[in-house]
Amino acid sequence: MILFKRKTAGEAIFDGLNGLVMLLVCFVTLYPIWYVLVHSFNNGTDAMQGGIYWWPRVPSLDNYRAVFENTGIMKAMGITVAKTVIGTAAHVFFTSMVAYAFSRRELVGRRAYMMLGTVTLFFSGGLIPTYLLIRDLGLLDSFWVYILPAMFNFFDLIIFLAFFREIPAGLEEAAKIDGAGDFTIFCRVVLPVSMPVVATIALFHGVYQWNDYFTGMIYINNSDLQPIQTFLYRVVAQSSSNQMLAAAPGGMAKNVTSQSIKLATMVVTTLPIVLAYPFLQKYFVKGFMIGSIKG
């Protein structure tokens, strides 16, 4: 028989207050998103009158038509998808390969490499030296500026390293007996048994690549190479929304405003990753737990 302990008055009050505080935090967090969503589906001219808080007063899809009829946002979406897929694959493969080398006890200078890598977790060269390096490498106004500088991250290496150290040494020894070299062992033995950490790092870096606007803002002048988040930044912070409004068809222009186009653009650019995140949450939690408990 399971006996339930009766709560004291103090515990009941604490639980009630705790629940109210959590509800308030959820409301403060979610309502701005709902507010943007409601206004993006409302007639832009009508929304300028104010008074819309919970539901669209004059529902309209013209804001989204104005966004999707703009060729710039479609190009930016394609760049973002391409750099997210290619950048994530390159980052996972290269960082995991370096981490596997670090996990080998016979690696000469491993302690020195770890010390140098640890320094990079706290200090960086700064924006100006980094920009000069990118320029000298010929990566300005190049798609590869999204890929090459982000191929390696020492924090992700630490996560990979903690997982690789838990792999039984017998697996690698059996592969060596069969004549496999280090690279073959890494590709055909280590990576297949490391899919949990591979998925975790892929999600970490994929979200970073999707949300990154700073790289496109600093290193890209060619509008055909800007990602969706940089496009969103320019729509919100500059006059791009007015240009989209001017380009809207006559029958649509009277129903949209620069503000309503901004809100619709924000929804379009953030919706894919917002919808994907709930399905990926368990991998993020598992990624933080890798290597935290030793048997």
Rank of each mutant, 00 (worst) to 15 (best):
Y146C: 09
I147L: 14
F152Q: 06
F152K: 02
F152L: 15
N153T: 10
N153K: 10
F154K: 01
D156K: 08
D156M: 09
L157Q: 07
L157K: 04
I159N: 01
P168V: 13
A169M: 07
L171K: 03
E172C: 00
E173S: 02
A174D: 10
F183Q: 08
T184W: 09
R188P: 03
V189L: 01
P192Y: 06
P192L: 06
P192W: 06
S194V: 01
P196Y: 03
V198N: 04
V198P: 05
A202F: 03
F204E: 07
H205G: 09
W210L: 04
N211P: 03
G216K: 05
M217H: 11
I218M: 08
S223Q: 10
D224T: 14
Q226F: 08
Q226P: 10
T230C: 08
V236R: 03
A237V: 14
A237S: 15
S239N: 15
S239G: 14
S240W: 10
N242E: 14
Q243G: 05
A246I: 04
A246Y: 10
A248F: 01
P249Y: 06
G250T: 09
G251F: 08
A253D: 03
A253F: 02
K254V: 14
S258G: 03
S258C: 03
Q259T: 13
L263C: 07
A264C: 11
M266D: 07
L271A: 14
P272N: 10
I273E: 00
V274I: 15
V274C: 11
